[in-house]
Design a protein around this nucleic acid. Structure first.
Length: 875
RNA sequence: GGGAAUUUAGCUCAGUUGGUUCAGAGCAUCUGCCUUACAAGCAGAGGGUCGGGGGUUCGAAUCCCUCAAUUCCCA
C-alpha cells in the first residue's frame, strides 16, 4: 500500500459520514441499562445559512457528544430548526415583493402557503451543512418549532399560563416598528447615536400675554401634548403652575403641572408631556391622571387627531411643522443635537414608542426558581462570570411582551366574541363551547374572531428541551419514555448574546413545567470576529464561507482551527492561519501513520526500546489526566492543546524518533505492537476533535466490524503513571536538546557523530535511556565520568556535560557564556537566600513552601558549583 | 447616567485558594537544515519589569484603592 505524503480529506469525509449514518451510530434509543447523555441543538433559523458561529458552536457540541458516546453513555444529540418569526416573515415578504406580490394583497392562508414553501425549500440548508462538519446528530429526531405537535405544545402552554393568570392582555407602551408594523421586545431594539435637532418652541399662556418655551426633538408630536411640566422647585416657573398653555398651531389648552422628573438643566426646564409617544411622559401621565392622545397611525403617519398634517409621515411632518411654527412666530430656535435613538434590529426603522394592546407574561414569580437555580449552581454557567449578568437581568426582569403583529408563527389562541370579551381556547369549536359556558350565548364561527397576532418566537423555543422529546407533555402532564430518560439534558452550548432571550427562558419553562432544570451545564461560546475585531456578518461580507473552508482545509482541520483559539466565553478572532494549523496537524498525524505502515516487521523484542515504550505509556496517562481535567472544566481548547502536544511533541517528535528503526531496517514485533497500541489510543483521544481522520486511520490499521468502529470504541481510562519516569525523561530530553543546540551553535552537521560525557551524582535517572540518547543526539559514545574533560560543556540541572570537539574550542567565548550563566544563577540564589534568611518568612510561610525554597537553594547551589567547575577547567 | 467584564511575549490566550527553580503555551519571528514519515516538515534560538500609580503582606500577575483604555449589558 502506498500512501500519499499529504492527507486528502475530501473522500474520507463523505465515506465515513455515510458509514456512521448507515450503521446507525448517531441514533439513540431509550435504554435504561445505559446512562443517558443528551444535548439539544440551539435550533438555527430557517432563514440562515451556516456561518462561523454555527461552526464553532456545533463543533463543540459534537466534541462533547462524541466523547460521551465513546465513554459508553447513550449519547443523544437532537437537531432541529427554529421558525424565526420576524426574520423569516421579512425574508418571505421580500421574496414575494421581488415577484411583484405585496403581502397586503394576500390572505393569511395564501401568505402562509408561500412561507411554508419557502421553509421547505431553504429551511433545511443549515442542517445539511452541519453534516459536512461531521455533526453526529440523531437526524431521525429532527424537529421544527412549527411542527404540528410542537405548535400544540406552544398553544397548551399559552392556555395553561393564561388560566394560571400569568398571561394577561393590557395597554402598554411598546416599541413599535412602523416599517415592520409590529411590536418589538426591548431586546430587539438597538440604540444608535443619531444627529437631530432640538426645537425651542413658544407656547402662549391662556388668558395672558406671557409665554413659555419648551425644547423638544419631536416637534411633530406637539399636537398630542396633554400638559407642560416643570420642576416643582423651579423658581422660574412656580407662578405658571396651575395655569394653562396653548399648543401652537392648534391652540388646544393644556395644564401646566409640576413633577420632579423634570431636569431643570436640560433645555428650558419646561417639558412637554406626550403620553402616547414617550415612555417617560406616559408614566408622568399616569401619575397626574392625564388623558392620552395618540396622533400616529401604525405606519408612522399622522392621523386625524393631529388636526394638521394628517396623513404625513412622522419625519416629513417634523420638517413641515418646523416651518409652520416659524411662520407663526412660535419657533424660538433650532439647535443641533445628538441623541440615542432606538432602531429595529430587523428593519432598522426608528422605533416609535406606542400604546398598544398586547399580550404579556408576568415574570416576577415565574423567574424565581430560574434565578435560584443558577445562583446555587444547580445549573452551572461556563465561564461563571456570566452569573453576574444573569442575576442582574433576572432581578430586574420586566413582563415579557409575547405578541407579535405577524402571520408566520404560532397564532395566539385567543378568540374575540361579539360582546367584546374573549376566551382562550385550543380551537374555534372549543372557543364556541367555552363562550357558551361562560356567557350563555350561542355563537357560530362567523361571530368569533381569532387574534390575528402570533407569539414571540422565544415563546416556542423556551420549550425546546422538553418539546423535542415529548411535545404532548404539555397536554398530558405525564412524561413519555424519552422525556423521562433524556431530560434534564446534560449540556447546552450557545452564544452569550442569547443568554437572556433563550437560555434564561428555557430555565424558567423547565422549572415551571417539570420542576427540573432543562440542562445541567451551559457552555457559552464567544463571538467569531474577523481580524479587525468586527463581528462576522453577511452584510459586512467579512465571513469566510465555511463550506469553502472545509473544502480547502478538511472538516477536521477546520474543527481544530476553530477551537485552537476559543476559550469559553471569549471572542474568537478568526484567522485562516488557525485553520491552516488544523490542516497541518491532520497532515502530521497522517504522516506519522505512513511511517508505521512503511515498516517491515521482524519477530523479536528489541530491549533497547523498552524504556521508550514505558515512558510513552506513562506520559500518555499523564496527558490523559490533564485532558480529562480540561474537559471536566469545559476548557475544550485546552483539552485540544494538550492533545495536540501529546501527539505532535511526545508521540511524533520523541517517541517515534526513539523507536524508529534505521533506514531499510525492520522493526521488532514487540515494539511495533506497542506502537500501534499507542497509535490507537491516540486516535481515540483525537476522535472527538478530528472524527474523520481518526476513523480513517483506525480502519486502516486493520479491518473492523461495525461494532468496532472508532466512533463507538472505548474512551481510554486514566490510570496512575510513574511520575519519576516522566521527570527523568524530561531531563534526558533536555540533555539531548543541549547537544543539538551545541551542534547548531558550532555549525556542526547533524550527521557528524559526537561523544558525550556526563558528570552526575544521579546516574540512575539515565538508566535505560542511553541507547535512546545516542540515537536522538547522534552520539557515537556516551560515558559517565567523575573527572572533567577538556571539551565544550553545558550544565543541565546539576549535571555537567562534555562534548569533545574536533575543532578548537574558543575558550574566551565559552568562559563568557558560563560566566553569564553563573551571574544568572547567583542572582537567583540571592533572592532565595534572602527569603530563607527572613525570619518572618520561615515562621509564617507553610512548611511545604519553605521546604521548596530550601530545595531551590540546594539545586541552585549544585548548579552553581557545576558551572564554576567548568569555568576552572577552562582556565 | 447605572452595572459588569477585560487589559500578561508581535498575535491569540493560560496562569485554579497570593508561595514548585526571579512568568507559560500555540502561532508568528530569527538561524541552520529538502536528515528516505511529514518543507502542510525537522532541529535550535530570541522575545514579557504581567495597562499606569499607590497600598496590604515575609512574599503580589494573583488581594485592596485609584487612574486609563477597550468591550458588553441596562437606562
Amino acid at each position: 500500500m502506498t500512501l500519499s505524503t499529504k492527507y486528502n480529506p475530501a473522500e474520507t469525509e463523505s465515506k465515513w459520514y455515510d458509514y456512521w449514518i448507515k450503521n446507525g451510530h448517531f441514533s439513540s434509543k431509550v435504554d435504561p441499562e445505559k446512562e443517558p447523555y443528551s444535548i439539544v441543538i440551539p435550533p438555527p433559523n430557517v432563514t440562515g445559512v451556516l456561518h462561523m458561529g454555527h461552526m464553532l458552536n456545533n463543533t463543540i457540541q459534537d466534541i462533547l457528544i462524541r466523547k460521551a458516546r465513546m465513554e459508553g453513555k447513550n449519547a443523544c444529540w437532537v437537531p432541529g430548526t427554529d421558525h424565526a418569526s420576524i426574520a423569516t416573515e421579512a425574508k418571505v415578504v421580500a421574496m414575494l415583493s421581488e415577484k411583484g406580490i405585496q403581502k397586503k394583497d394576500l390572505t393569511r392562508e395564501e401568505f402562509l402557503a408561500h412561507a411554508w414553501d419557502w421553509k421547505e425549500k431553504y429551511g433545511g440548508i443549515i442542517l445539511e451543512q452541519l453534516k459536512k462538519l461531521g455533526a453526529s446528530c440523531d437526524w431521525d429526531r429532527t424537529r421544527f418549532t412549527m411542527d404540528t405537535d410542537l405548535s400544540q405544545a406552544v398553544e397548551n402552554v399559552f392556555i395553561d399560563l393564561h388560566s394560571k393568570g400569568k398571561i394577561y392582555r393590557g395597554i402598554r407602551m411598546v416599541n413599535w416598528d412602523p416599517k415592520g408594523k409590529t411590536a418589538l421586545s426591548d431586546d430587539e431594539v438597538i440604540f444608535k447615536e443619531v444627529n437631530s435637532n432640538l426645537f425651542y418652541i413658544h407656547y402662549k399662556i391662556e388668558g395672558s400675554t406671557e409665554q413659555l418655551t419648551i425644547a423638544t426633538t419631536r416637534p411633530e408630536t406637539i399636537m398630542a401634548d396633554v400638559a407642560i411640566c416643570v420642576h416643582p422647585e423651579d423658581e422660574r416657573f412656580k407662578n405658571l403652575i396651575g395655569k394653562k398653555a396653548l399648543i401652537p398651531l392648534i391652540n388646544r389648552p393644556i395644564p401646566i403641572i409640576a413633577d420632579e422628573y423634570v431636569d431643570r438643566e436640560f433645555g428650558t426646564g419646561c417639558l412637554k408631556i406626550t403620553p402616547a409617544h414617550d415612555i417617560n411622559d406616559y408614566e408622568i401621565g399616569i401619575r397626574h391622571q392625564l388623558e392620552v392622545i395618540d396622533i400616529l397611525n401604525d405606519d408612522g403617519t399622522l392621523n386625524e387627531k393631529a388636526q394638521i398634517l394628517v396623513g404625513e409621515d412622522r419625519f416629513l411632518a417634523r420638517k413641515k411643522i418646523g416651518k409652520l411654527l416659524n411662520e407663526a412666530g412660535q419657533l424660538a430656535k433650532v439647535e443641533a443635537y445628538t441623541s440615542n435613538v432606538g432602531h429595529s434590529e430587523r428593519t432598522d426603522a426608528i422605533i416609535e414608542p406606542r400604546l398598544s394592546l398586547q399580550w404579556f407574561l408576568k415574570m416576577e414569580e415565574i423567574t424565581q426558581p430560574a434565578l435560584k437555580a443558577v445562583m446555587q449552581d444547580s445549573i452551572r454557567l461556563f465561564p461563571p462570570k456570566f452569573k453576574n449578568m444573569y442575576r442582574s437581568w433576572m432581578e430586574n426582569v420586566r413582563d415579557w411582551c409575547i405578541s407579535r403583529q405577524l402571520w408566520w408563527g404560532h397564532r395566539i389562541p385567543a378568540y374575540y366574541l361579539p360582546n367584546g370579551k374573549y376566551v382562550v381556547a385550543k380551537s374555534m369549536d372549543h372557543a364556541i363551547q367555552l363562550a357558551e359556558e361562560k356567557f350563555g350565548e350561542i355563537y357560530t364561527p362567523e361571530d368569533i374572531k381569532q387574534d390575528e397576532d402570533v407569539l414571540d418566537t422565544w415563546f416556542s423555543s423556551w420549550l425546546w428541551p422538553i418539546s423535542v422529546f415529548d411535545p404532548n407533555y404539555f397536554e398530558t402532564g405525564k412524561a413519555n419514555k424519552d422525556l423521562s430518560y433524556y431530560y434534564p439534558t446534560n449540556d447546552l452550548v450557545t452564544a452569550p448574546e442569547i443568554l437572556f432571550f433563550w437560555v434564561a427562558r428555557m430555565i424558567i419553562a423547565g422549572y415551571e413545567y417539570t420542576g427540573k432544570p432543562p440542562f445541567r451545564n451551559v457552555y457559552l461560546t464567544g463571538i467569531v470576529r474577523d481580524k479587525l475585531g468586527r463581528k462576522m456578518s453577511k452584510s459586512l461580507g467579512n465571513s469566510p464561507d465555511p463550506l469553502e473552508l472545509i473544502k480547502n482545509f478538511g472538516a477536521d482541520g477546520v474543527r481544530v482551527g476553530m477551537l485552537l483559539s476559543s476559550p469559553a466565553g471569549n471572542d474568537l478572532p478568526f484567522d485562516e492561519k488557525l485553520v491552516e494549523q488544523g490542516r497541518n496537524f491532520s497532515n502530521k498525524i497522517w504522516n506519522a501513520f505512513r511511517l508505521t505502515q512503511g515498516w517491515e516487521i521482524q519477530e523479536g523484542d528489541n530491549s533497547e526500546n523498552h524504556t521508550a515504550i514505558q515512558w510513552f505509556e506513562n506520559r500518555f496517562h499523564q496527558a490523559l489526566a490533564e485532558i480529562e481535567d480540561h474537559f471536566e472544566k469545559f476548557r475544550i481548547s485546552d483539552a485540544l492543546m494538550s492533545t495536540y502536544k501529546l501527539v505532535w511533541d511526545d508521540f511524533c517528535s520523541w517517541y517515534l524518533e526513539m523507536i524508529k528503526p534505521p533506514y531499510q531496517q525492520a522493526i521488532d514485533q514487540a515494539t511495533y505492537t506497542s506502537t500501534i497500541t499507542f497509535f490507537e489510543d491516540i486516535l481515540k483521544v483525537l476522535h472527538p476533535f478530528m472524527p474523520f481522520l481518526s476513523e480513517e486511520l483506525w480502519q486502516q490499521i486493520r479491518e473492523r466490524s461495525n461494532e468496532e468502529a472508532l466512533i463507538v470504541s472505548n474512551w481510554p481510562k486514566v490510570s496512575p503513571y510513574d511520575e519519576k519516569l516522566v521527570v527523568n525523561a524530561q531531563h534526558v530530553f533536555e540533555v539531548v536538546s543541549q547537544v543539538r543546540n551545541l551542534r547548531a551553535s558550532k555549525g556542526l552537521s547533524p550527521k557528524e557523530p559526537l561523544t558525550l560525557a556526563i558528570k552526575t551524582d544521579n546516574k540512575t535517572r539515565f538508566i535505560g535511556f542511553e541507547p535512546l540518547m545516542k540515537r536522538l543526539g547522534n552520539l557515537e559514545s556516551l560515558e559517565f565520568k567523575n573527572e572533567l574533560e577538556d571539551a565544550a560543556s553545558f550544565v543541565v540541572k546539576a549535571d555537567e556535560c562534555f562534548v569533545p570537539l574536533s575543532t578548537q574550542v574558543n575558550a574566551e567565548e565559552e568562559k563568557a557564556a558560563i560566566q553569564e550563566e553563573i551571574k544568572y544563577v547567583k542572582g537567583f540564589l540571592q533572592t532565595v537566600e534572602k527569603k530563607l534568611g527572613n525570619e518572618r518568612f520561615v515562621n509564617n510561610a507553610p512548611a511545604n513552601v519553605v521546604e521548596k525554597e530550601k530545595k531551590k537553594l540546594s539545586d541552585a547551589e549544585a548548579k552553581l558549583k557545576a558551572l564554576e567547575d567548568s569555568l576552572t577547567k577552562l582556565n
